[in-house]
Amino acid sequence: MTENVARRGFLLGGAVVGAGALVTACTGNEPQAAVSSPAPAATEGNDVPGEKVVIGFSAPAADHGWIAAIAKNAEATAKRYGDVEFRPVQPTNDVNQQISAVESLIAAKVNALVILPNDGQQLNQIARRASDAGIPVVNLDRVFPDKLSYRTWIGGDNYGMGVAAGHYIGAALKEKNVADPVIVEIQGIATLPLTQDRSKGFADALKTYGFRVTAQQDAQFTVETGTSVASNLLQAHKKIDALWNHDDDQGVGVLAAINEAGRNEFVMVGGAGSANAMREIQKPDSVLKATVTYSPSMASSAVKLARLIAQGKGMGDLVENQVPQSITLASETITRENVERYLPLGFES
Rank of each mutant, 00 (worst) to 15 (best):
V16W: 03
V16M: 09
A19T: 11
A21D: 04
L22T: 14
T24Y: 11
C26V: 14
G28T: 07
N29S: 08
P31M: 01
A34D: 06
S37H: 12
P38C: 07
P38F: 07
A39L: 04
A42M: 13
V48P: 02
G50M: 03
K52C: 00
K52P: 07
V54H: 06
V54S: 14
A61V: 08
A68L: 06
A74C: 09
A76D: 14
N93A: 11
D94E: 10
A101F: 02
V110C: 03
N111E: 09
N111S: 14
A112N: 08
R129F: 04
V143K: 15
P145V: 12
S149H: 02
S149Y: 01
M161V: 14
G166R: 09
I169Q: 05
G170C: 09
V182Q: 09
V182A: 08
L194R: 00
G201L: 11
G201P: 11
A203M: 04
V213G: 09
T214S: 15
Q217V: 06
T222L: 07
K239V: 11
A242G: 15
Q250S: 15
E260P: 00
R263C: 08
V269F: 01
M278S: 02
T293E: 10
A299T: 05
A302G: 13
R307N: 06
Q311D: 00
V319I: 07
N321G: 15
Q322C: 02
A330C: 00
E332T: 03
T335W: 02
E340S: 15
F347D: 01
